[in-house]
């Protein structure tokens, strides 16, 4: 069996098994097939973990993109923890954009999330640069628990015909879990993730002290804001609308005889009104 087939099978399993156990199931799959571990880890989004920056005291989020071996880079200090000698850092230009993007998304987070934790990491690429915008918020009040993790990976291709625009590709995943535990409903968990993608060519304006690089940050900001708004609506539809509909398809609260009767009456009323 080729590694590709195995990777596809692993991803298929992960899209079926409980979204609350992604981490455990990843470990189990790589136990069965150790060879696909690296590919699998970079293809699967997991809830984000938090660390505190030793230098600035601010919290930041951990992911594959700010990891080097067992160390993670803080977006606030640009330092790895634990420190490593030959770590790879973003170029000066990309780091300046990264600092700007972290500032901008801190504002974004305070306006949309009114709390939570966020981090932006950027890195150089041959044809431009790429980055990831991470946002996380959790809450727990008595019988209710809730958590949201956003992972937006953006690739910026700057090789275009003119330098006035660039090509942006955004892949966004939102991991959302909600839970309730009380006497009335028993134990209820509603958890999972959705992934969406968008590509577009955008003009680059000159904004602030970074000039056109400030324009890149603004473009990424608009893309992420737009995508999160759409995904929030889709999550709402799937988590609350769809879930309730499917339960209703399995068991009807109203008696089916009554439902049929109501339909017949409605039809009759409609027919008499349309004069048939």
């Amino acid at each position: 069996m080729s590694a590709d087939t195995q990777l596809d099978a692993a991803l298929d399993l992960l899209r079926r098994l409980s979204p609350l156990e992604i981490k455990q199931n990843l470990a189990k799959i790589t136990q069965l097939v150790p060879d696909i571990q690296e590919d699998l880890l970079s293809a699967v989004d997991q809830p984000l973990e938090v660390a505190r920056c030793k230098k600035t005291g601010r919290d930041y989020l951990l992911c594959d993109y700010n990891r080097d071996g067992d160390s993670f880079r803080s977006p606030w200090s640009n330092e790895f923890d634990p420190p490593i000698d030959d770590a790879a850092y973003p170029s000066d230009r990309v780091r300046r954009m990264e600092v700007e993007a972290n500032e901008a998304f801190t504002v974004y987070r305070s306006l949309y999330y009114e709390g939570g934790i966020g981090s932006v990491y950027l890195w150089d690429q041959d044809d431009g640069f790429a980055g990831v915008v991470l946002l996380k918020k959790e809450s727990g009040r008595g019988e209710d628990t809730a958590g949201w993790d956003s992972i937006h990976v953006v690739e910026v291709d700057e090789r275009g015909k003119t330098s006035k625009s660039a090509h942006y590709k955004l892949t966004s995943t939102v991991i959302l879990h909600l839970g309730k535990d009380n006497d009335a409903v028993g134990n209820l968990t509603l958890a999972g993730s959705l992934t969406r993608q968008v590509e577009s060519d955008l003009a680059i304006e000159s904004i602030g002290s970074l000039g056109r690089d400030g324009g890149h940050v603004a473009n990424i900001g608009r893309l992420v804001e737009d995508m999160e708004g759409k995904m929030r609506n889709q999550l709402q539809e799937v988590y609350f609308g769809k879930a309730k509909d499917v339960v209703g398809d399995l068991r009807s609260v109203a008696s089916l005889g009554q439902v049929e009767q109501d339909r017949r009456t409605q039809r009759e009323v409609f027919q008499s009104m349309s004069g048939k």
Partner: peptide, 14 residues
């Protein structure tokens, strides 16, 4: 309930 179009969302309640 399980919904898995471009994602994996599960409602589980007992």
């Amino acid at each position: 309930v399980h919904y898995y179009e471009d994602g994996n969302v599960a409602l589980n309640t007992t």
